[in-house]
Each structure stands twice: as structure tokens, then as C-alpha cells.
Simulated assay, not measured.
Amino acid sequence: MDRTYVDETNRRVITEFRAGGPVEGMHRERLVLLTTTGRRSGRAHTVPMMFHRDGDRVLVIASAAGALRHPHWYLNLAADPAVTVELPDESYAGVAETLGGEDRERTWAMLKQTYPFFADHEAKVEREIPVVLLRRAE
């Protein structure tokens, strides 16, 4: 996909989301704006993405639609887990934590059942697709 198109779409989605109204072509109630710190640049980078509420947990999935490599936002938070989370109903300073072990396996199975396209993404790659918890900073 053309990088310019992706950047322009992300800018539009971020602007529409922050304005508080509908987000063209997206389900606002499933969108989160995640701001990470660039691992090389040290600058703030905000990306819109789908999130899932699992009880009181807010989860994002680094599938990148089945791309061979982890998305840049995931590499950024792996280097520095301090993030800003903007949900439809609240914003907070957060800490990103990649799920592991039994929690990751159980949660990943639930996500694939809830959103079958994640199974399609998984089938395209050899990497383990990270599931990330966005918890409040203390």
C-alpha cells in the first residue's frame, strides 16, 4: 500500500476522532489513538487502530494485517512502553505490556473467535502476533 495514502488516511482519522464526531469509514467506538515514542527519532507518533475491551482491559493487536514484520508502533513501544491512549470516552497516560504465556494464548484464541480476520492474519506470517495490554500508568 502507498505510504502517502496511509499517512494521509491516518491524519484524517486522527483529526476526525479528536473532533469527537463520526470517523469516515470506521467504527469510532472501536478506535483508539495510540501515541508512542519513536525508537530512533524520540518524537511522538500517533496511530489510529482497532482496540478490544476484555473486561476492564484495553487490548491492541500488532497484526499489521498479516505483514511479515511487526508494525512500527509495536517496535516503538517495545523500546519504550510509555504510551498515551485516546479512547472514544477517555484518554490516559499508559504503559504497554505485551501479553505472554497462558494469558496470551487464551486471549489470542478469544480474539480470533471474536474477529476471524485475525486467524487470516496469523496464517500469513511465521511471527507470533503480539497482543498488547494498554494499562494506566501509576
Rank of each mutant, 00 (worst) to 15 (best):
M1Y: 13
T4A: 11
Y5K: 07
Y5L: 08
Y5R: 10
V6D: 14
D7P: 04
D7A: 07
T9Q: 14
T9D: 15
N10C: 06
E16A: 06
F17Q: 12
F17T: 02
R18I: 01
A19S: 11
G20R: 05
G20P: 09
G21W: 13
P22F: 05
E24A: 04
G25D: 15
M26T: 04
H27F: 14
R28M: 12
R28I: 03
E29C: 09
R30G: 11
R30K: 14
L34S: 02
T35H: 08
T35G: 08
T37K: 03
G38I: 02
R39F: 14
R40P: 10
R40H: 15
S41P: 15
G42R: 08
G42K: 08
G42W: 11
G42V: 01
A44I: 01
A44R: 12
H45P: 08
T46N: 10
P48Y: 14
M49P: 09
D54H: 11
G55W: 12
D56C: 04
L59T: 02
A62E: 12
A62V: 00
S63F: 08
A64Q: 14
R69K: 10
R69W: 15
R69H: 15
P71I: 00
L75T: 00
A78W: 12
D80P: 09
P81L: 03
P81Y: 11
V85Q: 07
E86I: 00
E86H: 12
L87C: 06
L87F: 11
P88V: 01
G94Q: 09
G94A: 02
G94S: 02
G94T: 02
G94N: 08
V95G: 03
A96Y: 09
A96Q: 10
A96R: 09
T98M: 05
L99Y: 12
L99I: 00
G100N: 13
E102Q: 08
E102G: 01
R104D: 13
R106M: 07
W108S: 03
W108Q: 05
A109P: 12
T114R: 14
Y115S: 00
P116C: 01
P116W: 09
P116N: 06
F117H: 13
F118K: 01
F118C: 00
A119P: 11
A119L: 03
E122Q: 14
E122N: 02
A123G: 06
A123M: 02
K124F: 11
V125L: 05
E128S: 02
I129E: 09
I129N: 02
V131S: 04
L133H: 08
L134C: 03
R135H: 14
A137S: 09
E138L: 08
